[in-house]
Design a protein around this nucleic acid. Structure first.
Lengths: 342, 342
DNA sequence: ATGAAAGCGCTAACAG
DNA sequence: CTGTTAGCGCTTTCAT
């Protein structure tokens, strides 16, 4: 393998110095047109490829941003990442990806790894296990932009892009009430993540606002998965005054609920079911699943925008904004009880 | 922002030199236990975090591998990436992600970007547009590992991890024949990607082997998407001797086919439908979709293994292996014609 | 077992 | 408009 060409090779070839070459290549204005063209021509001919590592080491800017998500396999996060990349692409920033797999240990390792890689900033959505945020503080201490999206844990004082999860819980519940359901259950996670607490509050307040009673046995704390959905539905259906509608913590859990109900013959919309996140499959299952649209594309776009603003400032944290997106209900068959009346 | 601690700070603190600190920190054997412990203690106390960029610049190894996929939003690729990360994690390698979005222009830019970031190797699945592979040759020229997975274009002489796509086409067709379907259509892409050609060959050979005739009007070349599936199904159903089964280029296309057939009342399995890739939704749509399992987890794991082997060698390309995984049929309702007989 | 010193490829302040 | 020079933080050869 022959040695790679550097700006020294180009300089030697043209009998000029590396600084001139460096300037010519980086679009420095005070360079004669002739020199610039000559440099570009030789760079091309020698198949020059800049070493961004060296550049990053010297300039202190790597043009890499780290992204930490629980899992890339949830379409919600894949979509966010897709849109972060999209929003960043004209700025020259690239992404290093890290999956926490819902483990705080991995998340800590992720932050450490990304910091060692000298990323210029980090965007993260917290794992379900995350109850302590000290590992994120190192990023702030280094004065690098940290943006938390979707899964916010507690009072971490950085910009956040979140959904109005209280509202999400509220409108999901309200939608079911409007459809005519009277006894609405709620399956959520045992973990202390703010968004899930908020949804639960929204649920409770919507019930209250409509003169309904909050029954503790209608609220199930478990994990969120297809399996947990089946289990939760089974448990709820064994209650003496079993619910006529179920709000599930995410679409996967809702899918489990539906599968269980399909088996027991109480196929939705007989029992209403609504999920969260509008996963790829949700429109296509039977019955199709009503859900809450969480606008991952906007979240990704906002993350990118926010990052570019922060990184341009002397102090990224001098004007901390918290963007809150408003969720909407996606009405599908699983809550369309009217369809049964015909 | 206070300056970050470097090995110089540690050295000064202890009255030793940076070389000793560097050795102590990197597990060099010929270091006294006392020194090593002292270094570790001070590193901890000063909150030292190594600058991997500097290390990479000097040593020529960045411990980053670039991954290029068409889109992270297809579960197939998300799963591969997940498993690459998993397979690499103990080795200290991290991933920089790049999405080509099925555009060769993006793919070229991706290779360039990753090379400039001094990745130690690249794993890529080609875009549908990719008909020229010269941009990949630069990676080989730099003697860095290049591994192509799933989407292989033509005779590129690097290690590959692929599915036996001929076999995939063959068993998909054979499955339909065994189920009793007699007139089987095929929707595929217009693009010149090897895997799609291979599947088509498998389809044709399976028909021949079973004494069936290959009808050109039963083969549709279009794009692959839900929309194209609807369109393709519509076109096929207008043929005079319309098919009684359709093989769709991927599960999204198959979904479009099913939606169209559901509307026209020829709901599968009346018309048999099978897809490729076993997407997240395929088990949950109605009717559930028979498909070909393409084992993304194994592909990802194999990529990681292969990379680690290559990177450990003087010449990564001295023993080029091509791993071929065998697909299997996932039988679900959309091809279960027996169910209609009861 | 440890130190001295060179240098990876690039940028940027200063000088001219 | 261009050259000189120092140095980013680390690894590594050669000494001792």
């Amino acid at each position: 393998m022959k040695k790679k060409t550097t700006i020294y090779d180009i300089a030697k070839e043209l009998g000029i110095t590396v600084s001139t070459v460096s300037r010519a290549l980086s679009g420095f204005p005070a360079i004669s047109k002739a020199t610039r063209q000559a440099v570009e021509e030789v760079a091309e001919r020698l198949n020059y490829s800049p070493n961004k590592l060296a550049s990053a080491l010297k300039s202190g800017k790597s043009f890499i941003v780290g992204v930490i998500v629980p899992s890339i396999e949830a379409h919600f996060f894949a979509s966010i990442i897709h849109n972060i990349e999209e929003g960043l692409k004209d700025s020259g920033y690239r992404i290093i990806l890290f999956q926490s797999k819902e483990s705080i240990e991995n998340e800590i390792k992720g932050v450490k790894t990304l910091l060692e890689a000298q990323v210029d900033g980090i965007m993260a959505s917290m794992s379900l296990e995350t109850n302590d945020i000290s590992h994120f503080e190192e990023i702030i201490k280094q004065n690098k932009p940290l943006i938390i999206f979707d899964r916010v844990n507690q009072e971490i004082n950085v910009p956040t892009i979140t959904l109005n999860d209280y509202q999400a819980g509220y409108i999901a519940t309200e939608h079911l009430i409007k459809q005519g359901y009277k006894n609405i259950a709620f399956i959520t996670t045992i973990h202390q993540i703010k968004i899930f607490k908020d949804r639960l509050e929204g649920y409770k307040d919507a019930l209250k606002a409509n003169g309904m009673i909050i029954q503790e046995r209608n609220i199930i704390f478990s994990d969120l998965s297809i399996k947990d959905g089946r289990y939760g539905a089974g448990r709820l259906m064994r209650n003496k005054d079993k619910p006529d509608a179920i709000i599930a913590g995410d679409d996967f859990t809702a899918l489990g609920v539906i599968k269980k109900l399909n088996e027991t013959g109480e196929t939705p919309p007989k029992i209403g079911v609504i999920g969260f996140a509008n996963e790829a499959f949700s429109a296509y299952i039977t019955p199709s699943l009503s859900t809450i649209n969480q606008y991952p594309a906007q979240i990704g776009t906002s993350c990118a925008e926010m990052f570019l603003q922060m990184v341009a400032k002397q102090n990224p944290y001098d004007d901390i904004r918290n963007i809150i997106l408003e969720p909407t209900v996606v009405e599908r068959q699983s809550t369309n009880i009217d369809a049964l009346k015909h």
